[in-house]
Design a protein around this nucleic acid. Structure first.
Lengths: 218, 218
DNA sequence: ATACTTTACTTTACGGTGTTAAGTAAGTCA
DNA sequence: TGACTTACTTAACACCGTAAAGTAAAGTAT
């Protein structure tokens, strides 16, 4: 009898594991379809829950068993973007050998992310950016970490005396604004090619080192 | 009989005028309600045609007699924003006495527009900015004119030798990106107060004159 | 093996959206 | 006065996000 009970318990355990696996599988499938449709549809407006449901072959309300609501699903779509974003910034940081070079490379990485992931970038920083800076539960640290890399690089540069003594937050905001402005201009107006965006970014960085003036002003 | 005919024609004329007046009046009323609801609702998502119709006391489909569709209505809403935007930039230009001061004041005006009209700014440059740079029929020139002011100021500054010899388009894009980045950061993240935004913008401008370095780099 | 419970999903429904087509009542005009 | 035009409404379609109720199968305990 003891043996029978343990076998039963083992099958129970397996059954539980299997069902949990299926659950996470479907969740992943939904998220995957959502990312695909989101990128294909080209933004927030086109994206619809019911379309995602159709894509994965379930009824619309099933999505609610795996995500709280549309925003929650979209939040996780965008979180995928933030993961890669964070990694690219980190790679930029790591590739630099001096504080200033790190700042330059982080900026370049940021720009490249924006140029290569315009749809994600839109949602992350333009369309529904307020979503990103409020509660993202377990994922919030990742979002913030992305900027922590920039902040760390600024901190080093300041500490080692490379930068004029403005507050750290001013620098992070300023450098973020520099590159965000360029990316946003490229993405939303279409008046600028990616190559031009890179050129502008280069000038933008150069000016941090030298200013823009042809000759000193009185 | 001749007199009868002319009287008739006069009343006809008056009638026509009156009806046309009523038409333009209603159109203005719709637009006005749309602007109000758009600003109150806080953005593109909330804004609905049916709500506008209810506000002005007509059936939803009546709107289509005065505007092609929702986007067209929204386009005209936003155009109101561009008018004021253009005026503010122009005022900045006019207030400056030297090319560099003009550039600084245009940037400030831009910033102030963004800080004081966040809802309009979002639609104009963040959410549906692609709308603005395609056909706007008779209004397009106004949109472009806004940037023409900046371009003119840059042109002067370049011509008079105040700026390092980068291409004109690079400067306009760069200066636009500077201030747009700050405004966008302020509006969308809420991590920054308007006052901080102004401070960052001041530093941003100062760096154009001097760079950011504490000491020259090798 | 049977009865109960839980799980995973669907069906139905509500109130909203933009938009098109058909209908209507008043005003204009011959 | 009768036909035509104008200005508007009603009805309808195809969507949307979301909540509540229903269902069929799977799991579980006796």
């Amino acid at each position: 009898m003891n043996q029978v009970v343990t076998r039963q318990k083992r099958t129970q355990q397996k059954s539980l594991e299997r069902r949990e696996q299926q659950k996470t599988d479907l969740r992943a499938l939904i998220l995957q379809a959502a990312v695909r449709l989101f990128e294909a549809g080209g933004g927030y407006e086109q994206f619809s829950l019911r379309q995602v449901a159709e894509e994965v072959g379930y009824s619309p309300t099933t999505i609610y068993l795996y995500f709280k609501d549309k925003d929650d699903l979209l939040l996780h779509v965008v979180f995928e973007g933030f993961r890669e974003f964070g990694q690219m910034l980190q790679a930029g940081y790591d590739a630099g050998t001096t504080p200033l070079e790190r700042l330059r490379l982080i900026g370049q990485a940021y720009l490249e992310f924006g140029l290569s992931h315009p749809v994600h970038y839109r949602l992350m920083f333009m369309q529904r950016s307020e979503m990103m800076f409020q509660k993202l539960e377990g994922h919030l640290h990742t979002v913030v970490d992305s900027f922590a890399v920039l902040q760390a690089a600024v901190h080093e540069a300041l500490e080692q005396g490379f930068l004029a003594p403005y507050p750290l937050e001013v620098y992070t905001a300023l450098l973020w604004a520099d590159v965000h402005g360029i990316v946003a201009l490229q993405i939303s107006t279409g008046q600028i090619t990616p190559e031009q965006a890179r050129a502008i970014n280069d000038v933008s960085w150069a000016r941090n080192l030298t200013g823009l003036l042809a000759r000193p002003q009185p």
